[in-house]
Amino acid sequence: MSTAESFPSRIAGNRAFELPADFLRRQPVAAGGLIVILLLIFAAIFAEQLAPYDPFENDYGAMLAAPSAEHWLGTDSYGRDILSRLIYGTRPALVIGFASSFIGCSLGAVIGTVSAYFGGKTDLIIMRFVDIMLTMPVIVTAIVTAAVLGRNRIGAIDLNLVAAIAIAVVPTVTRVVRSAALAIRDLPYVDAARVSGFSNTRIVLRHMLPNVAAPYLIMLTGFIGQAILLGAALTYVGLGVSEPQPDWGLMLSGEAANFYREAPWMILFPGLAVTLAVFAFNLMGDGLRDWLDPKFAD
């Protein structure tokens, strides 16, 4: 199969409103992931209305209470309602996931495409740097970056946490997008654009970037889940969100790590929430990949 075929030609011709319908029809499993994602977004927007308790409110009368009619998912060591904290926790999870994945993937996509188009020394230097970054596990890069940047909070969201995760995913994305762009660079339609005497900017913007959209979109979705996981891991080792914010990662660490053997519900539900969210985004990413890859079309 020629390289041209590995790009989403099927998508190009349809009108915008037909696309979601086509996606749902062809990828019903991924649609399940989409529903979970929409529910999470809904919970994040309407947390005030949905949560039965104030997530910050300490109820010293009901510390470490097991799930009951009053507290459906129990309470933590400060007597805070776990369900309410879970609902509010969708906010940092989604924001950190979306923001860091978007920033990381977009940076990677631009660097990768530019590197591939210009080739030569530019490419060599960029890829050398990427290789060096890739000698480090993503989480090590994220931990070091988070430690270097310190904290810079706006509300419940730590901007530096977002930056740390974003920076950690850039090398991987750069790699993938660069190889996709390299394949496109040598396709006849890019040659034809050169023969047409178009400028480099026009060729990159009009003829190459739209055609790396597929790998970009797939990675964007996939990395949202990874970013949520990374965020939770960083929080677990004390570099992410800090008390008393309602955050899933936080609900798995600190006090929870000390008490979970006696009160398993403290970690059971937040862990499930993380898993479910990451699962949904991965499902969506996989569905997108299959949908955009004509090998799976028929």
Partner: peptide
């Protein structure tokens, strides 16, 4: 100007 062989990849799919 040019006309290429590979009719599948000589036109920008987008």
């Amino acid at each position: 100007q040019v006309v290429f062989q590979d009719v599948y990849s000589s036109l920008n799919p987008r």
